[in-house]
Design a protein around this nucleic acid. Structure first.
Lengths: 202, 202
DNA sequence: TCGCATGTAGATCGATCGATCTAGAAACGC
DNA sequence: GCGTTTCTAGATCGATCGATCTACATGCGA
C-alpha cells in the first residue's frame, strides 16, 4: 500500500480552516496554506486535489466540529425552548471570544461563493436548511409543550431564527460588541417567551 | 485645465459596482473591470487611484443609490411602523427581482473584508450603524404613537431588525426563495404588531 | 493659435497566483 | 530483502494578477 501519510489530516484541516475562515477563499493563497499547515504543495495537492477541494474539506470539517456538534448536543440534552435559547447564547459567547472576529465560516462562504460555482452554492444552501430544520423541530416541539406560543407557524419561526442567526454571525464579524449581539437576540427570544440563559457559552 | 473626461463617472461606478457586487473584491480582476466599463486601465487608475479605491467609490455609490435613498424616502413619507414594514417589503422584492441573486453589496463587503483592512471594516461597520439608527428612530416613534408595543426597549428592537435585515440579505444570495424571505420577516413584524404591506416593492 | 495639462490606447512591467514536476525517502506486501 | 507505491522536498511551470509606461489625442486658458 505504499508509504503512509506523516501528517494528521484533522490537524491540517483545522489549520487550513483557520486561515480560510479568517481571510476567505480568494484571498488565501496556496503559499499561505503550505506555510500555515507545514505541508509542501505536493502533499496538499496529493491529499486534497486542488485549492477548491481543500476548502470544501476544511469547510465540512468546520461544520462537523461546530455546527452539527452543537445541534445534536443541545437537541439531545435540553428542552426545545431551552435548546433554541442556549444555541444563541453559545453562538454569542463564541463570537465574542474569537479575537480575530471571523464570524461564521459557513456564512462567509455563502457570501463569497460566485454564481459560477453552483455546487458550492448548493452545499451552503443545504447547510442552512439543516439549521432551519433544527429550529423547526425545536419550534414544533416547543409549541407542543407550551414553551413558545402558537401565534406564528413553526415554519416561519424557524425561518426567522435562521435569519437572526445569520445576521448575528455576520454582524459579529464587523461589530463584535456584546451589547449589540445580546441585544439583537433578546427581543426575538422574549417574544417567543424565552430568554438568554446565564453561564458561559462553549 | 486640460482635456475633460469622456466617460460618465456615475455610469462607470454603476457598471463596476455590478461586477464587484456579484463577484466580490478579490475575485474581480482589473481586466474584468476594464472590459465591463469600457475604460482603459490608465483611465481607471487615473480616475480612481487603485482597485481598492475604485471598490470604495463603487460601494459608496451603491449605498447612496439604494440604502440611503430608501431610508430618507420611507422616513419622510410613512408612519414609523409602516416605514419599517415597507422597508422590509422593498428589500424582499428587490432581492427576489435580482436574477443574479447578489444579495447586498454592503453585507458582501462586510464578510469579505479582512482584519488587515481596518479602514474598510470601519466603513462597513459605520454603515450598519446608519441602518440601526434608522430602525431606532422608527422604533422610538412607533412606540410613542402606539404602532408597536413598549415591551422591549427601542435600542434592542433596532438591533433585532438590523440582524433580521442582514440575515435576509445574506440568505437572499444563497436561497432566493419567496417563501423563505417572506416567512422569515413575518413573525418578527407580527410580534411588533406590524405586517408586510401589499404592493410591489421598488 | 498654441502651450500644456489631462485625457485615452494598448503594450508590458514585476509579482504572485494555482498547480505540477523531478528527485529522493520511507514503509507496506510478499 | 526487494519491488512497489505513496510519501516529502523544493524548484519551477505558464497564467494572470494589479499596476504602470510610452505614445499619442484632445480640449481648455491665454
Amino acid at each position: 500500500m505504499g508509504r503512509p501519510r506523516e501528517f494528521d489530516v484533522e490537524k491540517v484541516l483545522a489549520a487550513a480552516g483557520d486561515i480560510f475562515w479568517a481571510r476567505g477563499y480568494e484571498a488565501t493563497s496556496t503559499r499561505a496554506l503550505t506555510e500555515r499547515t507545514g505541508l509542501t504543495p505536493a502533499s496538499l495537492y496529493n491529499a486534497f486535489g486542488d485549492k477548491r477541494g481543500f476548502y470544501l474539506r476544511a469547510l465540512r470539517y468546520y461544520l462537523d466540529q461546530t455546527l452539527r456538534e452543537r445541534i445534536t448536543r443541545l437537541e439531545s440534552s435540553l428542552s426545545p425552548g431551552r435548546a433554541i435559547a442556549t444555541f444563541f447564547r453559545e453562538i454569542i459567547a463564541r463570537s465574542l471570544a474569537d479575537p480575530k472576529h471571523r464570524g461564521c465560516m459557513l456564512m462567509n462562504t455563502a457570501i463569497e461563493v460566485t454564481p459560477e460555482d453552483p455546487e458550492m452554492q448548493r452545499i451552503v444552501a443545504d447547510e442552512t436548511v439543516v439549521i432551519e430544520r433544527f429550529f423547526h423541530r425545536c419550534a414544533v416541539a416547543a409549541q407542543k409543550n407550551g414553551e413558545i406560543p402558537r401565534s406564528e407557524p413553526a415554519e416561519d419561526i424557524a425561518r426567522m431564527l435562521l435569519a437572526l442567526l445569520v445576521g448575528l454571525r455576520v454582524l459579529a464579524r464587523v461589530r463584535p460588541d456584546a451589547k449589540l449581539l445580546n441585544g439583537l437576540v433578546r427581543p426575538t427570544l422574549a417574544m417567543l417567551g424565552l430568554s438568554l440563559p446565564r453561564g458561559k457559552g462553549s
